[in-house]
Design a protein around this nucleic acid. Sequence first.
DNA 1: AATAAATTTTAGACAAAGCTAAATATTTGT
DNA 2: ACAAATATTTAGCTTTGTCTAAAATTTATT
Lengths: 218, 218
Amino acid sequence: MTLSEEDYIKAIYHLGKGENTTVSTNAIAEKMETKPSSVTDMVKKLSEKGVANYKPYKGVSLTEYGQKIALSLVRKHRLWEVFLVEKLDFSWDEVHEVAEQLEHVKSEKLVDQLDKHLGFPQVDPHGDPIPSKKGEFKKAIKKLLNEVPIGTSGICVGVKDSSPPFLKFLDKNKIALGDTILVLDKEEFDGSLDIQIKEKTIHISNQIATNLFLKITE
Amino acid sequence: MTLSEEDYIKAIYHLGKGENTTVSTNAIAEKMETKPSSVTDMVKKLSEKGVANYKPYKGVSLTEYGQKIALSLVRKHRLWEVFLVEKLDFSWDEVHEVAEQLEHVKSEKLVDQLDKHLGFPQVDPHGDPIPSKKGEFKKAIKKLLNEVPIGTSGICVGVKDSSPPFLKFLDKNKIALGDTILVLDKEEFDGSLDIQIKEKTIHISNQIATNLFLKITE
DNA sequence: AATAAATTTTAGACAAAGCTAAATATTTGT
DNA sequence: ACAAATATTTAGCTTTGTCTAAAATTTATT
């Protein structure tokens, strides 16, 4: 697969949300920042190569073979993201562009050894699961912190309320995007929570909890 | 710079042995496994871009700008080689192909952090020096083990005698290509040596020493 | 159901990087 | 010095991936 083909495969995969949905030419064009006519050409080629199913005017989906390729790319992308954050001190939001390049490097041994070097991580720095070598992986879902049961662990991926006072509160309590949060206990009465974050335990109100998004894999 | 342009720049650099020599079209074609006519085309383009000096029929050399690019590529290549060997347990002879791909990844932060992660190594697994961020580096030379002064340290990069008995001797004494060897002492009388290899000290005859190549940077 | 709007495909062109075959320079051997 | 050999360039064609403009198809609207 060429670099460009791989990018299209990933785009189709992601637009189909990992399920094997058919995606429209226009949607791919928008995601890839290219023209629909270019997409048609490429999609025909992928179809001839046995990577995609394509019916003119009816959209595209990946074949089983295409999905395998997509999962391998996702695996590489996410492993490199872990590497960049854990070993090279990149922050949360700097990794994507570089991983986008690294994921195209071809070497089975490289991926296997990288996985091992990183201690076989299950999720990337954004809380998204890393497919196994065979392509299996758990789904990730985004939930509000107040909605998850005690014992759940996830990665903080967003805020519902982005007003300055709330952001200031997060900053003061050293809660940042990308942090791993574990729900230790829940107070029935007022819905407040004990959570563990970066080795520390803190207590937060229900109001805070209803404004923090967590990505959890189950 | 495109991938292909970068490959040509590296080829010109290496054929010129790092010095700013002019190299011939045919030499580049052979190194790149392509046709001389393709080289002419590319070399014209590099010249227009200010990367190379090209006079038809007279060969090419890199401009100062071109040399900078070449050194940056060499730096990246060698750092990735160190990474593969030290962190991912690749062996000596498996790294080149993968590093060839990794060197094209564009991110200044990536290179800086990789350098740091590896402890600012001075040489790659083949004993070749790694250029600094600014492009400075020491020359490496290949010498026979018996020719270097006491205190010299280098990497074992080859054998002069490749007969089975000699190779068997090396194997038995756990001397392998890629190993770092330090000359501890030299016996005037018979030219035999004490050397340190992989934390161990061993004594070898002059005959052995005259058949082992060491790469040293000075 | 008919037409307008939106989407998608086709046709034809272009740039990058490569190739072959032919033409042109340079170098070498005598 | 000049013919032969070698090296290099030019010209024209191919493939990959892209684009624009026009044509075709599907979807939406009235």
